[in-house]
């Protein structure tokens, strides 16, 4: 049965492997040359590939196992042999899952080195976090399982793939924006002065923020003096709030760091950043990977139930 799975996914695995080799090659070149500034476009392509490869490969391989068989009716051949549908699904799936996980893991190992080599922000910051460590392997398994699940509901391969893409992206967005930040205790730092806001907060201009520069700032803004987070039920106040509350300034052009400090002080507000330090990288990595692996197991379990019940 391992051979069967390999034979049915051979082309896909080889194509995915070619992409993996290409991206690893490009990372090796850009990571060692040190001249990445000139290769910004190439760097962007590498990042896009590292984001897309685990998800696209997982979904294509997953829908092949279920939707393609059901669309082309070859499941009628497979399901009338001497093995149960459950065993058929499991034995079709695990060789692909294993091969894909090993491949994605190898690419991620290189990417973990590469994000530092090209100074793509520290590993805990979102872009680097998403393409390094162990989470890409979990993303691959999650996408694979969602492909399998979509294909056990929908008989059309293209449609199942599209649904799986939407479900995968949605789960990534939700976990990335709402769950990941809480996988380890959040730390807070109150700043003596608010950072300049020309292009969002610029930490390097604020003394004493070396830790923040390496961290993932998950929330920030003005909160009442004496607190490190907003009063429950209230938002983090951003700089635009000050324009309304300090009427002495009517035009944004007049905003200066001194004015911001004075205005905030008169309102008894200070600027606080909530962050996950770089040291929490592996806790967050393992936590998020665990979520996606558990989700994948759940999706495959559900697919087994659906396929056992499905009627041709």
């Amino acid at each position: 049965m391992t051979w069967v799975s390999w034979r049915l996914h051979r082309t896909q695995l080889l194509i995915a492997g070619a992409f993996a080799v290409a991206v690893v090659g490009t990372m090796s070149a850009t990571g060692t040359s040190g001249a990445w500034v000139q290769e910004d476009g190439l760097r962007a392509q590498v990042i896009v590939t590292l984001y897309a490869l685990p998800v696209v490969a997982g979904i294509i391989m997953g829908t092949t196992v279920t939707a393609r068989e059901r669309e082309r009716l070859t499941n009628r051949l497979a399901w009338t042999q001497g093995i149960s549908r459950t065993r058929w699904l499991v034995s079709s799936l695990w060789p692909v899952a294993l091969a894909g996980a090993v491949g994605v893991g190898a690419v991620s190992a290189v990417a973990t080195w590469w994000v530092d080599a090209v100074h793509l922000g520290t590993r805990i910051q979102p872009t680097s976090f998403d393409i390094s460590g162990v989470v890409p392997v979990a993303y691959f398994l999650g996408a694979l399982a969602l492909g399998v699940l979509a294909g056990s509901v929908l008989r059309n391969e293209g449609l199942a793939g599209a649904v799986a893409v939407v479900a995968t992206v949605a789960s990534r967005v939700v976990v990335g924006s709402d769950v990941r930040a809480h996988l380890a205790p959040v730390r807070h730092q109150a700043l003596a002065t608010a950072p300049p806001f020309d292009l969002g907060p610029i930490w390097s201009a604020v003394p004493g923020t070396a830790t923040l520069q390496d961290s993932w700032v998950v929330a920030q803004g003005f909160v009442p003096v004496g607190r490190t987070s907003p009063v429950p039920g209230h938002p983090w106040l951003q700089v635009n709030v000050l324009y309304d509350r300090c009427p002495s300034v009517t035009q944004a052009a007049q905003v200066s760091r001194d004015w911001v400090r004075e205005c905030a002080g008169s309102l008894h507000l200070h600027y606080v950043a909530a962050y996950q330090p770089l040291g929490h990288y592996w806790v967050l990595q393992l936590g998020e990977a665990g979520i996606f692996v558990a989700g994948a197991a759940l999706a495959v379990g559900l697919a087994v139930l659906l396929l056992r019940r499905s009627s041709e």
Partner: peptide, 19 residues
């Protein structure tokens, strides 16, 4: 359907699906 293993029952579909 889908639960027992039809080991001793062979089946050839009308559309003869093959890979």
């Amino acid at each position: 359907s889908g639960r027992t293993v039809p080991v001793r029952v062979g089946y050839v579909d009308q559309l003869r699906p093959l890979y």
